[in-house]
Design a protein around this nucleic acid. Structure first.
Length: 261
DNA sequence: ATTGTGGCCTGCCCGC
DNA sequence: TGCGGGCAGGCCACAA
């Protein structure tokens, strides 16, 4: 599923291939996919004749700026959404998502004057598009999170550490698989109260967030150490302990009871 | 405010 | 071979 890492790949794709191309037409056949009262007609009126001028990202949201004082276009990809420009996908494979080439799953298509297009293909319709998204609703991006900022994110919260890290209003970009991987590497129990970490543990966690994002940046969220072991009968690749499966923060959570404390 | 829960979307996989 | 049920997780509405 797309997390920060995949959305960053989408951002780079959009930046490399979708900027500066005059928009001729917008096709948005699924009204449900348009958020915040947006309609296909309004979206078309807002974009046609303009060009995308910049591709930014906060957490899992992709932001496309438009020319001529045009609106900001915000795209969310849910867990099965893919970005394609001129038919080229931003990532090769998406775990939990079909990689079939089904045009009916295209929820948004921005057609350029030159005949190419930018489109979002989202089988499960969990993503969406909106104009002028509220940028203050998302916490600081997980990429570049310093120990000091992480300490503020965790605060004195008694919520499970994992739930706090997945709370997009506190820190944005981390999803279920990525958090399991980060906590596995950090040797921290996902069920620990978020505020119970001592300063050394906060520094350690911040370091593993950075290193995990760097390391998986070219491989994808699913390419972690613990990823392949997230299944019944899976054992810890590090010490061989059977992994424990729990629901934490409303999400299926796999962790090692031996080295995650 | 904080924390937890349930529902939504629908393709896919497993077992019968 | 077809079918039904469970599962996946990001996000939101809602409750205590």
């Amino acid at each position: 599923m797309p997390e920060l890492i995949e959305i960053e790949a989408y951002r780079r794709l959009a930046e490399a291939k979708a900027l500066g191309r005059p928009i001729a037409e917008v096709v948005a056949p699924d009204a449900w996919w348009l958020k915040g009262g947006l309609t296909a007609g309004a979206l078309s009126d807002a974009l046609v004749g303009r060009v995308f001028t910049a591709a930014r990202r906060t957490g899992k949201r992709l932001l496309l700026e438009t020319s001529g004082a045009g609106p900001l276009l915000g795209l969310r990809f849910g867990m099965t959404g893919k970005l394609l420009v001129d038919g080229t996908a931003g990532v090769d494979e998406l775990i939990y998502s079909s990689n079939r080439d089904v045009g009916a799953w295209d929820r948004l298509m921005v057609v350029f004057d030159d005949g190419g297009d930018l489109r979002v293909r989202d089988a499960r319709r969990l993503g969406g598009a909106e104009l002028e998204p509220d940028e203050a609703r998302l916490g600081p991006d997980a990429a570049g999170l310093t120990p000091a900022v992480l300490a503020r994110v965790l605060g004195t919260s008694r919520a499970p550490l994992k739930a706090r890290l997945m709370d997009q209003a506190r820190v944005s970009g981390l999803g279920n698989l990525l958090v399991d991987e980060i906590l596995y590497r950090s040797g921290l129990d996902p069920a620990r109260p978020a505020g119970s970490l001592d300063p050394a543990e906060v520094r350690r966690l911040a370091g593993w967030i950075r290193r995990t994002l760097d390391r998986l940046g070219d491989l994808g969220s699913h390419a972690g150490e613990v990823g392949p072991a997230r299944r019944p009968g899976g054992v810890c690749p590090r010490d061989g302990t059977p992994l424990v499966r729990r629901t934490i923060g409303g999400r299926t959570t796999w962790s090692c009871p031996t080295h995650q404390r």
